[in-house]
Design a binder for these strands. Sequence first.
DNA 1: GCGATCAGCT
DNA 2: CACAGCTGATCGC
Length: 436
Amino acid sequence: MNMDRGLISVDRWADGSQAYFLTHLHADHTNGLSSSWKKGPLFCSHITATIFPIKFPNFNLSLLRVLEIGRWHSISLVSPLTRSETIVNVMAIDAHHCPGAVMFLFRGDFGNMLYTGDFRWESNSERAVIGRSMLLGALKNDKLDIIYMDNTYCHPSYTFPSREVAAKEVVDIIAAHPEHDVVIAIDTLGKEELLLHIAKTLDIKIWVWPERLQIMHLLGLNDIFTTRTSLTRVRAVPRYSLSSSTLEELNILRPTIGIMPSGLPWMMEAYKGKKATWLPQPSQYSGSKLSTKDGIETNHSELNGISSGPKRYHQYIYSVPYSDHSCFSEIKEFVSLLQPVNLKGIVLKSPLYIDPLYHFGCLLEAVQPSERRQKFRRIDSESGDSVQTSTVAGKGNSTKNRIRRRAHPGCLGIRIRRVSLLRRSQSGAKIVETDV
DNA sequence: GCGATCAGCT
DNA sequence: CACAGCTGATCGC
């Protein structure tokens, strides 16, 4: 521990680093950050800096450093090893996740490192094309030593269409219920483009709660959203407030449907078995043909995917596969494009969690394992478990270890069973130099 | 009273 | 189980 003095932290807010980086303002990336936090300079995108005071009132804004997207920035730090000045170069790149979300590409004595944060890689969207050329242009012919990657849906069973296609499905559902009120579940940040598409296509305003309207205004969205319910039949509501019971109560007053836009299906309550009356039923929308980026017509509802087309899980609730995270094929495309020397997931807990190396090890740059750079180590909080070894005292089991060691065969399409692993301690990374 | 952590819920 | 939260309880300072 005392040998390792920190250089930089990404989405981690503990002591010991000289520069801190925030990918985006979702709560699972700001654990440990607070209004009184002042451990060092905090680098983020312009949009994140704009919204920041809403999330952390009274924060000392002089700590914020805005990184222009697509431009290299030089940061002078002190090398923990030589105690002399060392330069870290960083570029922020649009992550297409939620407003302000960026990836960070780092360049330093430690090599080239990409920390994606949460991201969606829709290769056919214009923004993704820009991001792709930005990444490749920044790397030139250099190799990427490591990617810390959003592995939320890093399993072949996660298939869903582009957000553009999913947004059309939402519009279809609303248009098919012309006499209904509609409530759409959203979080404090994200899915704005879905709401804009609905508003534009159906020529209606959308109600949001007052705090959310403030965020919309900070994002420059001033005309579409309202806090007056009388102006529209479509309301965006906090996700935790949309449930079977709230929909049943709303339907006493007016006919109302709920829409859950998510890469995961809306079936939490079904799992809990509270009520048996809402077995998943194919709706009139579930058989729609969806076009993949390969141009192949795929009926998503027939794939074994957990999330395919829209589904009605409840008398009043539709689940639509609108996701701000990449699906499995997009993650695969991303890794194939960049072919890093090493690859680690940043989400440690998920029902289908598997080390990304299991699926993508064969896509990495061919380097002998002994040559793999050991400069990067991810230190996972006080529990002391690192992603590399993933040994957790008292929690280890042979299944986990066997699967983890057999990283490469996954590329052959071998199915492995579900493994629940670590608790999600956090999802950030701390970079230390540990050269011998 | 404040921050951190956790349980429970959606 | 979960996407990304919210609320409330508890503990230490």
